[in-house]
Design a protein around this nucleic acid. Structure first.
Lengths: 223, 223
DNA sequence: CGAACTTGTGACAGTTTTGTCACAAAACCA
DNA sequence: TGGTTTTGTGACAAAACTGTCACAAGTTCG
């Protein structure tokens, strides 16, 4: 059962789509206030957003942009203006797919299922971050390099992940501290240093030398 | 830099697409043997597959099915037959998107970027499994319920994940054993029992009673 | 019912992980 | 250069995690 937020001003179409999607076991919430959809979005916390482009007050692109500021929820656009320019625009705004109107019920179902499947079912199995010929497996916290594989502890994993997610950028020690021990408990500054050292040790054992570089007074970086 | 596998028999189109995609910094591998694309697929280990539907020997659906047996790599279909039935078919086969021919270079780029972004960039931030009002966070191995949050150990996390990924189905103790300690080391049968008990204890502390149900001589289930 | 088998429990010890400390090394800056 | 600040290191003890054991409780099936 997925929560699907439907933002569509054509009442007839919206109601038909709602029924269609609910039919195979989902909860659909229909937006009625197009002036500010965000309260309902935040309240409903949907797994997927179906977003019409032509809306009263603000258009779909505007809402996509707003949603993306605080969420990576999958978004599928709906529009009768289904020229290539609109499709490109929709994808570049952070959209996941584009369904042209008139909406074919079969296509609607198939595309929703594809996006949900990709995001909530099989996503775990391909999640790894590659770097410098090595790869960090996000599922079992292992690093593979040159055919070798080692396990990381929770702290080591978090540090490496944050650094890789910001590859090429300096990550301040403060950011890392917050990422590892968010406010709920106090730990010394030095604890981070020690944990970085432990991670470095393991990386060197693997053959990955000078991976994490210290930028004095700034932080650490993997470039 | 992503590795993109292009399976397309129209040499002119293929070459144009290859150039187009390489232009914004990717590696593209063009398939030349349509009789069996799997050796090249396995060798190249792509981040994304662009798969024409009409091919010599076997069609794109066949290869999608074959690939999906061993991989969840994102697949985008290409076809000049872009009627709704083909789109539905493509999505239901495990495809991630569908690009109609003639291929518009902008659309091609936008759709590839959207799929790559979704799978390799922002995936981590929405990975959680929801169940019975609770949710398992796949990134930091925590379970949240009723505003409370607890951390799971590696073993507890793995058991819960496997059970949730097979929600409603009985998971045999053997499957769980393999998932936790794949062949590399021998552990007793009872070790699993103990680990399940430890997970159950934590779930009950959270207020989730009778979550994991024992099916004697069959396995465990979360229904 | 009762024996055989499967699953659950509490306790224990070995290992791993983790935070801290004291001190060393390096970088910064006047 | 020399003092100050920042970062790194090895050692240590506390805490967490894990596998095993002995035994208890539950289930199956003749």
């Amino acid at each position: 059962m997925y929560r699907i937020l439907l933002v569509e001003d054509d009442a007839n179409l919206a109601s038909a789509m709602k029924t269609q999607i609910e039919n195979w076991g989902n909860d659909v919430h229909l937006i009625s206030d197009f002036k500010d959809i965000m309260p309902e979005f935040n309240e409903y916390d949907p797994h997927l957003v179906l977003l019409d482009i032509m809306l009263p007050f603000y258009n779909g692109y505007h809402w996509c942009e707003t949603i993306r500021k605080g969420s990576n929820v999958p978004i599928i656009f709906l529009s009768s203006a289904s020229d290539n320019m609109n499709i490109v625009m929709a994808m570049n705004m952070g959209g996941d797919d584009f369904i042209p109107k008139p909406v074919d019920p079969m296509v609607l179902t198939a595309k929703i299922q594809a996006v949900l499947r990709r995001n909530y079912e099989i996503k775990a199995s391909i999640s790894e971050i590659e770097f410098d010929g090595a790869s960090l497996n996000l599922n079992d916290s292992t690093v593979s390099f040159n055919g070798q594989k080692i396990e990381l502890t929770k702290n080591e994993f978090r540090i490496l992940r944050v650094l890789l997610e910001n590859k090429g950028k300096i990550v301040s020690r403060d950011s890392l501290m917050t990422a590892l021990w968010q406010d709920d408990c106090y730990v010394e500054e030095n604890t981070l240093t020690v944990n970085v050292a432990r991670l470095r040790k393991k990386m060197e054992d693997l053959g990955l030398n000078d991976l994490i570089v210290t930028k004095p007074r700034a932080g650490y970086i993997i470039s």
